[in-house]
């Protein structure tokens, strides 16, 4: 343990950070994972400035906007992240990514995941879940999308009817809800 005290480098892989969610659950995560969340990183750095001793596992970082169920999924996604942040460089890789995104595409969850990723300023996650959401709603019917997001159709009845007629062809060939 003397090792950690001698090494003040916050990116040392062995260090753990404790995160506290809105429902008061504690998550002990590796520092490398936690540092992906820029909000946590910022908090951590601010804390460090204030009090050098208050570091590592002794600090509990509160995340009042994130539920434990969501955080657990974000952390598991974070752990699966490849080391290099390279863009998919061929079609096969893009297909794999697409499949991977599909796994997260359970209705409702995605909005929570995006919201949390946004709060945590977790860039790769935000990118990934936003794309997953876009993947999910393309080729879906208007009713499905409205229900999915809880959006009320705010068109006047005559406008609504007009769009229905105008784009009647577009309502064919949509995926099963």
């Amino acid at each position: 343990m003397s090792n950690t005290s001698e090494n003040p480098n916050p990116s040392s892989s062995s260090a753990k950070i404790t995160l506290k969610t809105s429902d008061n659950e504690l998550f002990e995560v590796e520092e490398a994972v936690a540092m992906k969340f820029c909000t946590v990183k910022q908090y951590f750095e601010d804390e460090k400035d204030n009090d050098v001793a208050a570091r590592g596992s002794s600090t509990v970082i509160p995340l009042p906007n994130v539920h434990s169920a969501v955080l657990a999924r974000l952390i598991s996604y974070c752990k699966k992240l490849p080391q290099s942040n390279a863009v998919a460089d061929n079609h096969e890789e893009e297909e794999t990514k697409k499949k991977e995104r599909k796994q997260y595409g359970t209705p409702g969850d995605l909005v929570d995941l995006i919201s949390a990723a946004n709060y945590l300023d977790f860039k790769e996650g935000l990118e990934f879940f936003n794309q997953a959401l876009a993947d999910h709603i393309q080729n879906k019917s208007v009713e499905y999308v409205r229900k999915f997001f809880g959006i009320k159709g705010d068109f006047e009845p005559h406008e609504e009817e007009k769009y229905r007629e105008e784009y009647a062809w577009a309502f064919e060939g949509v995926d099963e809800d």
Partner: peptide, 8 residues
């Protein structure tokens, strides 16, 4: 064409 009919 489909998605723009969701809301204003």
């Amino acid at each position: 064409t489909d998605c723009k009919a969701v809301s204003k």
